[in-house]
């Protein structure tokens, strides 16, 4: 009887890239391999990890979300303005998160109901969110009275038992998403959307509803990211999220999440996001500027795909060998 087997193609290329990158910086960037710096890489990874989860799930479902960076910004700006206006902190944060969620819902609605290609719908949302964030903030960082909201400082920079609260919250949110993904119908339905959405329809499940769920979830993650970012940097900058969408897409892809294959890997996506954060950290230790990071992130995407192709070929050769051995 047939058994499930491990296929090399199930291994995200992020694993290889991460090891190479990590060893490279550990050897050549002084101060990289210190407890303090490693901890700060992890803290820097929190928000990209949140975004990458949402984006990975969208990609697995054969969608794409280019808006998460600017939706994060908009959520942060909304929350910041409300704080500035003196709204209770819990309420302001909630509205911030809901702003992101609503953007995600709109993305889902455009894709599922108005039948826009995900690329177009989220590209539009990317611009809408950025435009709104800049208008609302008048293109300036929004500051609020820090002393009025000590809880925000606790979230942003505090620690319990030596662990940053910021990271703790991030990990908690990620754990919930992963749990929900693997333990409920979400994974089944997302894989089915990615593999062949007709199957979902014929099984009596609403395709439109689940597409909306998936995009909304991605918006929710961007919303959470936005308010956490506020707490972290103690202001709401209308450009803070720019480029985060690209990092999220690249992280998801090298983490083994591709469109139209009907499968995915959330842990791979997280590793993908951490890999990119590691590169950013290592380069800045080596005093390389931002533009080099962009070059490298782009290159990593290509390298990731090349590694995957390599895996496909090795897997193929392996099959042949087995065959010859049995013949």
């Amino acid at each position: 009887m047939r058994k499930n087997r491990f296929h090399l193609t199930d291994l995200p290329s992020a694993v290889i890239i991460f090891i190479v990158v990590f060893v490279f910086f550990a050897v050549s960037a002084g101060g990289f391999f210190s407890a303090y710096n490693l901890a700060s890489i992890l803290t820097q990874s929190v928000i990209p990890c949140l975004l990458v989860l949402g984006v990975a799930i969208v990609i697995m479902s054969a969608g794409l979300d280019l808006s998460v960076g600017n939706v994060l910004t908009l959520s942060g700006v909304t929350c910041g303005l409300l704080l500035k206006a003196g709204m209770p902190v819990a309420l302001a944060m909630l509205v911030g998160v809901l702003t992101g969620t609503a953007c995600g819902f709109l993305n889902g609605f455009m894709v599922a109901k108005m039948k826009l290609p995900p690329f177009i719908a989220t590209l539009a949302m990317m611009n809408i969110a950025s435009g709104l964030a800049n208008t609302l903030s008048q293109k300036k960082p929004v500051y609020w009275e820090r002393e009025a909201f000590p809880i925000l400082d606790t979230i942003g920079t505090g620690a319990v038992l030596g662990i940053p609260v910021f990271a703790l919250i991030g990990v908690l949110v990620m754990a919930v998403v992963i749990f929900v993904f693997y333990r409920t119908r979400l994974r089944t339905n997302v894989y089915t959307l990615g593999g062949n959405e007709e199957v979902l329809h014929l099984s009596g499940v609403s395709v439109a509803k689940w597409k909306i769920v998936v995009f909304t979830l991605s918006g929710l993650m961007a919303g959470v990211g936005g308010v956490l970012m506020d707490a972290r940097v103690t202001c709401a900058d209308p450009t803070v999220g720019t480029g985060l969408e690209f990092a999220a897409v690249v992280g998801a892809v090298i983490g083994g999440n591709l469109q139209n294959v009907g499968k995915g890997n959330l842990f791979g996506a997280i590793l993908g996001a951490i890999t990119l954060a590691t590169i950013r950290n290592g380069l800045s230790i080596m005093h390389m500027n931002n533009y080099w990071q962009m070059v490298l992130t782009g290159a990593i995407l290509v390298i990731g795909m090349v590694i995957r192709e390599l895996f496909v070929r090795i897997e193929h050769k392996k099959k042949l060998k087995e065959a010859e051995a049995s013949a």
Binding site: T192, S203, V261, G262
Partner: peptide
């Protein structure tokens, strides 16, 4: 109408 990456039971 099957999903390749899911188990028979799923």
């Amino acid at each position: 109408n099957l999903v390749q990456e899911l188990s028979v039971a799923r």
